[in-house]
Simulated scan of single mutants.
Amino acid sequence: MFRVAESLGHHLRVMPQFLLLGVVLFQAPTSLAAQDLLYVASQEEVTVSVIDTKSNELLETVDLKTLGFTESAKAHHTAVEPDGSFWYVSLISAGTVLKFDRQNRLVARANFEAPGMLSLDPTSDRLYVGRSMAAVNPPQRIGVIQRSSMQIEEVDVFFPRPHALAVDPHGERFFTASLGQNTIAYAPLGVEEVDLYNIDGTTHTLVQFALSPDGDWMVAGGQLSGDLLIFDLNNPQPTLVKSIPIGGQPWHPSFSTDGTTVWVPN
């Protein structure tokens, strides 16, 4: 894992300190600051672990198999309401997104082929859903769930295998990218017509985005290229400003809460 920090030139650079070498697969945790809880999906176990981040205590393991899902359902990614009232998990092979309440009771679901990454719009009722990288040829669309009703609509993105997914923390835009080509789709939240941004050069296979807390920057890890790509979001179109070779397969970068550091597992 590499630590990336903000330089004086207002770009991001890889720090020389080597912290940890590891591989992050499909278990993508989501934290809930107000409750100090962490929801961690285990794809192999088909469970979601609920962890108290203050005490580092495992509070509960929600076994989705007890709800009728098979051992191959593949719990993939989680998202949590800002007030902690509900949380969501995508199940790749089951083709569904589940909604649970604060007491970890299943209350609703939305069907969607091969759901992958989830990104919640904290300013509205929308939850965005990408496609899993396990799906070889899924529809060229992402899902938009109305969280209160769990009704889902699909938005055309016009490229294969839309996987990387992120929502602007200020509720302005969403971003998604193809695993098969260097293309990013973006649009204002709630809009169904996207614009496309193409990146020249070798195929990166952008696995996932992370946006800075102020919404000015976006980073993405390139599985095939081994590069961390840095985008400036201060203009209507995202602009690639720097590509940092870090090696390995950088998948799921994360910004620190103050926006000065990016952690990149590879």
Rank of each mutant, 00 (worst) to 15 (best):
G22C: 10
G22T: 04
G22K: 02
V23A: 11
V23K: 13
V23I: 06
V23Y: 11
V23N: 14
V24E: 12
V24Q: 15
V24G: 08
L25A: 07
L25T: 06
F26V: 08
A28G: 07
P29W: 03
P29Q: 01
T30N: 08
S31L: 15
S31G: 09
S31W: 12
L32D: 03
A33M: 07
A33Q: 10
A34W: 02
A34P: 10
Q35L: 10
Q35V: 10
Q35A: 08
D36M: 13
L37W: 12
L38G: 01
L38D: 01
Y39T: 00
V40P: 11
V40F: 14
A41R: 00
Q43G: 15
E44W: 12
E45P: 01
E45L: 09
E45V: 07
E45N: 03
V46C: 08
T47R: 13
T47S: 02
S49N: 03
V50E: 00
I51K: 03
I51D: 00
I51T: 00
I51E: 00
D52P: 09
T53Y: 09
K54E: 15
S55D: 00
S55C: 06
N56Q: 06
N56E: 11
E57N: 14
E57M: 13
E60H: 13
E60R: 07
T61S: 05
T61C: 09
T61W: 02
V62W: 05
V62S: 11
D63W: 15
D63M: 11
L64D: 03
K65W: 05
K65L: 07
K65M: 07
T66C: 05
T66N: 14
T66I: 04
L67C: 07
G68D: 11
G68L: 01
G68V: 02
F69N: 01
T70V: 05
T70D: 01
E71L: 11
S72P: 03
